[in-house]
Nucleic acid binder design. Structure first.
Lengths: 365, 365
DNA sequence: CCACTTATGACACCAGCTTACGTATGTCGA
DNA sequence: TCGACATACGTAAGCTGGTGTCATAAGTGG
């Protein structure tokens, strides 16, 4: 139900700017004629659009390429360094910040541990410090940051406020987006961590080719992010994917049980080595996970189920039993794969969210 | 991720045709000047668009309205009778067909009982016969039907084939859309019944104002339909919402238990009258339903949960306990309301699906 | 019959896209 | 070195579609 507004000639220019810009970014350094061919627009139109984009600082002209046949073509490139965004994960144990250019290329990472029991203001302070350090360390002026996005566990509403956190002390009620906006004095967004990880996976991870995706983030708790039609689905209050809170699903218990005495990593390692008890324990964990995952899968019927977070790094030791249990529960279970990211998935997703915002702005809504 | 194509001038005309047509249909009989005001387009543009639509047969000019001040304005109206669609429910016990014009006004209903154990070919034959009778009875030429849509229990894939049916004998594998296309020799669509009921509810039922919606259809089995952003979400294989198949959810058992000895209607009636045993039984049923419903609600976090189907007609006798159990299970449970339709919801949704198709065609994709 | 109201019709104008064609600027081979 | 060739540029003409303006038409009311 897109709001449908009447179009005058300027709408055409907007559409064609969009088309041209996309093509330019996809092709890299390109000539006018080539851009005309791939977009289906005339050379003149492309040129006019590129002039405009050049004036706005988004496109740069490079010296002509010599050595080829015929008159050398003017060459253009997208200026990925015209602006930057920062993506931040404000997690339970640590804060991760990523500085990226408009192409989403990460220029600098910054991490800092935060004690699990830290108060909200300490955690926020650490997050701000880390984000600023990330930018300062890269030698970039702070005003070059166009947008910031932050991901955090818990339910984050549409305004970017944490409306419920069950894991971080004092976290419920924190206006994460509002505070993050203060770091660089720019627009700021906030969302649930699993949601952002799902975005990242669709952008540059294991789910590049699909449009409907469920991402399950396995950590101290287990959360889920949902992409439908390639777009984040957050739900009415940002609580979409919070299946883990359903008692029957038992995710909370599963997470607790897994690491009852030994650390989770040790259990997975032992299971990989063939330790019977450990294998059984992983299998139990997988069985519990499968209940919630199948509820998600049966509801959404996604193209793909991606597992991420600390425990997902165990790989097939966990994935194989999970696949087995899922197949038992679901009519036709989706494909299950591991996240393509290590512990930077959430920050990458935050980068993507910030870029989405910036790209909308770039083209004047 | 819309496919983005370059725009020439004809794109503008398409957009403005869309805008004008919508406004015209919303306003009813209208003048040029008024249409210009409400669309934000100039009178000239509106006139040109309307001329074109008139030639194509979608718009009719009416005689000017006399008696008002000033020069009488030309008056235009959408021709809802330019084409028609048929929506069909192919259910377990009956077939329901609805004939509607382009405004979605139902011109004729037709119903026929079908024994639950009927073979697939009998059921299909009954469906075709009912659809044809519906149109013939209204005195409408069969070639005036532009599209047909059919809804049926079970999983229906994107091509309109029933890929899995657990209730109707021989139903798995039936190419419902393909066969329905033969009835009138027009394009035909098919989808799961709960999905269509959800569409109907969003169109003209209890969910008009919301964009994310879960609809639970309570019948011999319980199925669910999901609307996200006002659009049907069917999933990879059309299996979205099939949470009822999850054993932990226990919907199948719940449906069986409810009507163990007495009929379900009697149980609800007794509960309404205050019969303790019946109240307990409805409560148990509601409790079971709530598990699946909460899984759906926690996954999607919809604006609204609509209950439909035979059992939903019991009203608050069922809804109240369901709301109570939902509130226990969900972080913030969605509002729960009953369907606005009786047993015509699925056919109405089928009409809507067919109209969606027709409207896309009308504007040239 | 005249003043007033409201919509129409015709005209000029603008933005934006396309096609066509001549021209500029390089490479390649004799 | 020079002409043939290839390729891209620059300009102009023409189309579509949308907007604003202004005189005019066609009613009502006194």
């Amino acid at each position: 139900m897109t709001e449908l507004r009447p179009g005058d000639a300027s709408l055409l220019r907007k559409v064609n700017t969009q088309v041209t810009l996309r093509a330019l970014r996809r092709e890299g350094v390109t000539t006018l004629t080539r851009l005309g061919r791939v977009t289906g627009l005339s050379r003149q139109t492309v040129e006019a659009v590129l002039d405009e984009l050049g004036e706005r600082g988004y496109v740069r002209e490079l010296p002509p390429d010599e050595g080829a046949m015929g008159r050398p073509a003017r060459r253009f490139a997208f200026r990925a360094d015209a602006g930057h965004v920062v993506g931040v994960e404000v997690g339970g144990d640590a804060v991760v910040a990523a500085l990226a250019d408009l192409d989403g290329e990460v220029i600098a990472w910054e991490r800092a541990p935060v004690p699990g029991g830290a108060a909200a203001h300490e955690r926020l302070e650490a997050a701000g410090r880390t984000a600023l350090k990330c930018v300062d360390g890269a030698g970039l002026a702070r005003r070059r940051i166009w947008a910031v996005a932050a991901g955090t566990p818990g339910i984050v509403d549409r305004t970017g406020r944490v409306s419920l956190s069950l894991t971080l002390p004092g976290w419920t009620g924190v206006d994460l987006a509002g505070l993050a906006g203060g770091w660089f004095g720019c627009t700021a967004l906030a969302a649930n961590d699993a949601n952002l990880a799902a975005l990242a996976e669709h952008w540059r991870g294991s789910a590049r080719h699909v449009s409907d995706l469920v991402y399950v983030l396995l950590g101290h708790r287990a959360g889920a992010g949902i992409l439908i039609g390639g777009r984040l689905h957050q739900g009415r209050r940002g609580a979409a994917g919070e299946i883990g809170t359903l008692r029957q699903v038992g995710w909370e218990r599963a997470v607790r049980e897994l690491a009852e005495d030994a650390s989770a990593a040790e259990v997975f390692k032992a299971a990989l080595a063939g330790d019977r008890a450990a294998v059984r324990r992983v299998d139990r964990y997988a069985e519990h996970l499968a209940v919630g995952a199948s509820a998600l899968a049966l509801t959404v019927d996604p193209d793909l189920l991606v597992l991420g977070g600390a425990h997902a790094r165990a790989g097939d030791v966990l994935l194989d039993p999970l696949r087995r249990h899922l197949a038992e529960l679901c009519v036709n279970a989706p494909e299950v794969v591991a996240s393509a990211f290590g512990d930077e998935g959430v920050a990458m997703g935050a980068v993507r969210l910030a870029l989405d915002h910036v790209e909308r702005e770039m083209l004047g809504l």
